[in-house]
Write a protein that binds this DNA or RNA. Structure first.
Lengths: 218, 218
DNA sequence: CTTGAATTAAAACAATTGTTTCATACACTT
DNA sequence: AAGTGTATGAAACAATTGTTTTAATTCAAG
């Protein structure tokens, strides 16, 4: 039956995703994947051909179960400020989710800083839609000519802040100290990044206005 | 003489730095290092013991020839706005320098997102001083209580923007398009990040004030 | 029950890895 | 010039890598 063949194929795919996301392509062995996937060493080549094909399949699977930021249709009446707040918060939630299949985002981030052959596909299917969503928000936030001139840089300024807490988490934790870093929870980070970015664009009070905006957001 | 033994040792160290920085620890082979360093395969173990010791030595060498942002003594009379502008620009310059031994920064960044045993040393000797410099600037820019509460996050918001253009350059280039991305040169980026961050902190005009600040800076 | 294709398992494959061994070449001291 | 200790070179080491081969097993259809 298909139920059984698909079973080990899926187990392999899931195991590969976790390990690839954690150690990267070259640092993971097919033996380790097969061990976690409870399959024989030959299973990888049987189902996928070779290791790289398995990796590509893993990346594709990762952005198939993609996030909700891809093609957002915003409720009518929302201000761009609200949209940006939701965008940032959802990005962070997906990035910092501890419990769920967290390896999707990890694998994507790894591909983003150390691209392989799967990179181009990933950009078109996953990243560009998200970029378009963000660019739409930015177009609402700032005058048209500025958005044309600096739209990309403004977008990068926003997402880079989000990416930081996942990509450079080890260093940030070492720098701040473990217990103090643990206080930088998701709502606090989302609030900070949102207000920092809005203030930079002249929308919203600058950070010096010491409203402890966390409670305001949640 | 020492001149000769030190010679191949240094050649090895330099070659290792370049390759480690480009491909990471596990993905680089000692044979490749020795080939570029024009030494025998046994040279690595002869001079350093094993591969990991060579890697550690490489990281230490990287942050020995560290940047000028470590312990800055600012000229008297400088405003914190000026200091931040210089800080950001120097960071970007060191990051995006094409010609010079660019692998120092690359190796550091790699260690920052994929830490190995050398990570702790790197943070204390290299990153923490830079963080302190930035935190000093932030303390001048914003009120004391806010700097205490959100000092780390503000700092992360600033450096994350700088890091982005190095760490995620491949994706950014794919997203923007090669020719358009090439227009994002160093002065433009430095200007944008500086004004974005200053505006976020209520110091300086927000980005919507469409002064094409590039010429103003250079 | 038999047949036959699909899946799994075990073993071996060649290639590459980090590391070690040992012989040679070299430089410097006596 | 002989001897000594260091640096280099070529070869081989054992271990691990991705991949292939071949046999055993499974399981539904005839």
């Amino acid at each position: 039956m298909d139920a059984i063949q698909e079973q080990t194929r899926d187990r392999l795919l899931e195991a590969a995703g976790e390990i690839f996301a954690e150690f990267g392509y070259r640092a993971t062995t097919v033996r380790e994947i097969c061990q976690r996937g409870k399959a024989n060493v030959a299973a990888v080549n049987y189902y996928f051909g070779d290791k790289m094909a398995l990796y590509i399949a893993t990346v594709e699977r990762a952005h198939c179960s993609g996030p909700e930021l891809l093609d957002v249709v915003w409720p009518t009446g929302w201000t761009p400020q609200q949209k940006l707040a939701v965008f940032i918060r959802q990005w962070l939630e997906q990035q910092l989710a501890e419990d769920r299949p967290t390896w999707h985002m990890r694998l994507m981030l790894r591909e983003m800083s150390d691209p392989t052959d799967a990179c181009v596909k990933l950009v078109e299917a996953y990243i560009r839609p998200m970029a378009n969503t963000l660019r739409g928000i930015i177009h609402e936030l700032v005058p048209g000519d500025l958005a044309e001139q600096r739209g990309w840089m403004i977008g990068f300024s926003i997402v880079s802040q989000c990416l930081f807490y996942k990509v450079h988490r080890p260093i940030a934790e070492l720098l701040v100290g473990r217990e103090e870093y643990s206080q930088l929870n998701l709502p606090l980070l989302a609030d900070h990044i949102t207000r920092f970015s809005l203030a930079a664009l002249g929308q919203g009070e600058p950070l010096t206005a010491s409203t402890s905006g966390v409670e305001r957001m949640t």
